[in-house]
Simulated assay, not measured.
Amino acid sequence: MAPQGLNVVNLAAACPKGGVLFTEDMISWHVPRRVTPLLDGRITVSEMHMGINGQRLDRSQMAARGYTLSTTDFHIVVEIPVGSPDGYYKSHAPDYQYHITYFVEPMLEVLWREDDTQDDTRYKVLFPIMTPLMPQSPQIQDDTVPETRVFSVLLGTFLHDVELRNITFSIGVLTVEESNAKGFTVQEHSLANGSKSFSLQVPFDADVVLKHV
Rank of each mutant, 00 (worst) to 15 (best):
V9N: 09
N10T: 10
N10L: 13
L11V: 15
L11E: 13
L11N: 12
L11A: 12
A12V: 02
A12M: 02
A12W: 01
A12F: 08
A13E: 11
A13F: 10
A13Q: 14
A14S: 02
C15M: 14
C15D: 12
P16L: 08
P16T: 15
P16W: 13
P16K: 15
K17W: 10
K17G: 14
G18L: 01
G18Q: 03
G18D: 04
G18M: 04
G19H: 10
G19V: 15
G19A: 09
G19M: 12
G19P: 08
G19K: 15
G19T: 15
V20C: 00
L21E: 12
L21S: 15
L21A: 15
L21N: 14
F22G: 05
T23G: 02
T23Q: 03
T23R: 02
E24R: 12
E24S: 15
E24P: 03
E24M: 10
E24A: 15
E24Y: 02
D25K: 05
D25N: 12
M26I: 07
M26R: 10
M26Y: 04
M26E: 06
M26W: 00
M26H: 05
I27K: 00
I27M: 03
S28D: 01
S28M: 07
S28P: 01
H30G: 10
V31D: 06
P32Y: 02
P32I: 05
P32H: 02
R33W: 07
R33V: 01
R33M: 06
R34W: 03
R34L: 12
R34G: 08
R34H: 10
V35T: 02
T36C: 13
T36A: 07
P37F: 01
P37H: 05
P37E: 00
L38T: 04
D40A: 14
D40T: 11
G41D: 08
G41Q: 00
G41H: 07
G41P: 03
R42I: 12
R42G: 09
R42K: 11
I43S: 03
I43E: 08
I43P: 00
I43H: 07
T44W: 12
T44N: 15
T44Q: 09
T44R: 10
T44C: 08
T44H: 04
V45C: 04
V45A: 07
S46C: 11
S46G: 07
S46F: 10
E47I: 04
E47P: 07
M48I: 04
M48C: 05
M48F: 09
H49A: 10
H49V: 11
H49M: 13
M50R: 10
M50S: 06
M50V: 08
M50G: 11
M50W: 03
G51E: 02
G51P: 01
G51D: 02
I52G: 02
I52P: 03
I52D: 05
I52L: 07
N53T: 07
N53P: 09
N53A: 14
G54M: 00
G54P: 03
Q55D: 08
Q55P: 06
Q55M: 14
Q55L: 14
R56I: 13
R56T: 10
